[in-house]
Design a protein around this nucleic acid. Structure first.
Lengths: 104, 104
DNA sequence: ACCTCATATCAAAAATATTTGATCTGTTAT
DNA sequence: ATAACAGATCAAATATTTTTGATATGAGGT
């Protein structure tokens, strides 16, 4: 069973690897076919496939099949979710506890 | 030399590990001393230290020394930066290129 | 059906990240 | 100065992630 922490971590996996950030940068320029990504990136076919899977699993990227070709694009919805989640994970709770350090 | 991708990836490293998400959750309740974190988390002293370093390096957490004790809290500024960066990394460029797939 | 091409999956190797226990450093108290 | 404690750092063990090359799958064309 997947914990909520794992579920959340998965979203940010998209952003914590160089290669994936490079891919996202390319996708910011609009939808791209895997073959286009492949020749802009210093990476083999199976390597690209591996990273694309992580990106799609994170929700930040979505893919569209067109015959033999797969086109990838940034998912507006997925990115909005990531942004919300980031905010949620970093916003102080309403109930703020005293820092009850053992020696105070 | 650190690439811009590595620099950006570092920010999101904070959020892509279960243990660190658990720590952030505790810090959402307000500033905490390492000793408090230590007995709320199933983790040894050096393990906590390791994760706290990653969190502080990401900019998302800041620390404050008070005698022998170190207190950690969520950095508003660092989190705002992470949020901006996330937005930037996922917002389409003004110049959108045609998906020039090799076979179209 | 058969061939070709795009992509996914697999398994092994390589690289990185995390955990653990030991030791070092810096601070406070005596 | 010495002892006691908090936290950082180090090195080794372990686990996870990423890379790579080989093979499988699935679509289109002949």
């Amino acid at each position: 069973m997947e914990t909520v922490y794992e579920k959340h971590a998965k979203v940010f996996k998209a952003f914590c690897d160089e290669k994936r950030l490079r891919i996202l940068e390319l996708l910011r320029g609009g939808e791209k076919c895997a073959c286009v990504l492949l020749d802009q990136l210093d990476m083999g076919q199976s390597g690209l496939s591996y990273h694309m899977k992580i990106l799609v699993d994170s929700g930040v990227v979505e893919s569209r099949q067109e015959g033999k070709w797969t086109h990838y694009r940034i998912s507006e919805k997925g990115c909005a979710y990531a942004a919300e989640l980031l905010k949620e994970l970093t916003t102080p709770n309403s109930v703020i506890e005293r820092d009850s350090c053992c020696k105070r």
